[in-house]
Design a protein around this nucleic acid. Sequence first.
DNA 1: CCAATTTGGTATTGGTTTGGTATTGTTGTT
DNA 2: AACAACAATACCAAACCAATACCAAATTGG
Lengths: 256, 256
Amino acid sequence: MTPAEKIFAIERFQSSDSAPLYLRLKKLVQDAIVADELKQGDSVPSERDVAELLQVSRVTVRKAFLELVSEGLLVQKRGSGTFVGNPKPRFEQPLSRLTSFSEDMRLRGLKTEAQWLSRETRLPTPEESLKLSMSPSEYVARFHRLRSANGEPLAIEDAVIPHKFLPDIKSVENSLYDALDANGFRPVRALQRLHAVALDAVEARLLDLKEGSPALFIERVSYLPDGRIVEYTRSHYRGDSYDFVAELNLAPEAKS
Amino acid sequence: MTPAEKIFAIERFQSSDSAPLYLRLKKLVQDAIVADELKQGDSVPSERDVAELLQVSRVTVRKAFLELVSEGLLVQKRGSGTFVGNPKPRFEQPLSRLTSFSEDMRLRGLKTEAQWLSRETRLPTPEESLKLSMSPSEYVARFHRLRSANGEPLAIEDAVIPHKFLPDIKSVENSLYDALDANGFRPVRALQRLHAVALDAVEARLLDLKEGSPALFIERVSYLPDGRIVEYTRSHYRGDSYDFVAELNLAPEAKS
DNA sequence: CCAATTTGGTATTGGTTTGGTATTGTTGTT
DNA sequence: AACAACAATACCAAACCAATACCAAATTGG
């Protein structure tokens, strides 16, 4: 018996409960998530498979899944499947702010400029497909720019957005998030990964530095409320002019 | 039977697993690397050869190889072939957790080592006085160490604590926060500032890198519940092995 | 040096799997 | 009797998987 068959066991589903079938299934999935039997990112059996396991129609399964999707517990993608979403940020308190470069600079009172290196609609690279969880045949909008503040180049930013969230790439003038917001697709959270790198010749020239100079490399994936990935951005921040500041709180589980 | 034929044996490839062919092949290669059957730099049979061995199309093999390439496990060169890459593990630290290096590594189940570079009580430098908001005539305890995980140097840490919070500097064996906790002075929050730097000759030698290699420089000031500053630490994390990860939430005030 | 060969790289197509929608029938409630 | 909720069947379309065919860089051998 596979884990999925265990979770979607007809015995769990059939109960003395007289609730409608779709509500019972909904609760079954909720309980499995709470019990950590289904974790974020896990794939859920297809609607047809669940329908067969539980001996109900696929539309009944669908109705249950749709409610879970609207609550962020599940994420669905036609042709791909159904996956457990991330309904709640892992940390109890927001510790860092999700802002775009423009907003960040504005908050600091700096005048920003952006030089377009590339702004185009094209197909994603395999790596971008993976990070964005999208089909390689689905178009993306790419915004590649050199960001400066007070006339000084500070960062190279390479953002990739699924085209469907930003049909008019010309609408992005300064703030990427403003443009996404205008289309009703503002991200609410993101996962960011960063480490130090040495700039290659091209990057160094753009940032007015020597090849090999240290830079902060940041890779970010951001999410809509319903769990869909809306942005994948890679940035290089020059090491000598850009500090990231974070205010931290004690991690409760770190108590020894 | 050559080693390659053994690795890419159709028996290993065919399994009861119902996963797509390309994912099975991907896993086969990953497993061979983990088992050290394929080592860094080894050449991998050509796509056509693997396709023939496993009786699938070359594009199916290609799809598996492309994902492995994007993850750094394989490297491809047209006309030359496919080789095992250098998938060195990268350590990750959540950027939003206030933990010491020891706790962080322990949470990951890694064996950590620390080599003392310096552990002494002395007067603070002017910079340290400023950061700690203390009198230059007040003693501090300094803990300067090279931190490693699994035998590999990862970070240089230079922590300064006002002496009054840590009278017995010998009590710090592994975790600085454990020792502070034992004295009732565990920090509850911190302000951290980070950017990329190039390692100088001394730092580079400690971390087994070339002078000028990129590193992440983190400066942290942490606070007791009553607002007193309890720690000022400067660390260098090598850029090639250490990722910081942050999960972010939308800043409400950033709405435009 | 150059043609042939080997290798990775790309475009296109068709079948299958998956989610998405429309419509219809049954049952309970008002 | 009318209506809403529940649950079904049937059909549509996006995405994935896997194939064939062709292109081009790099290597090899004469």
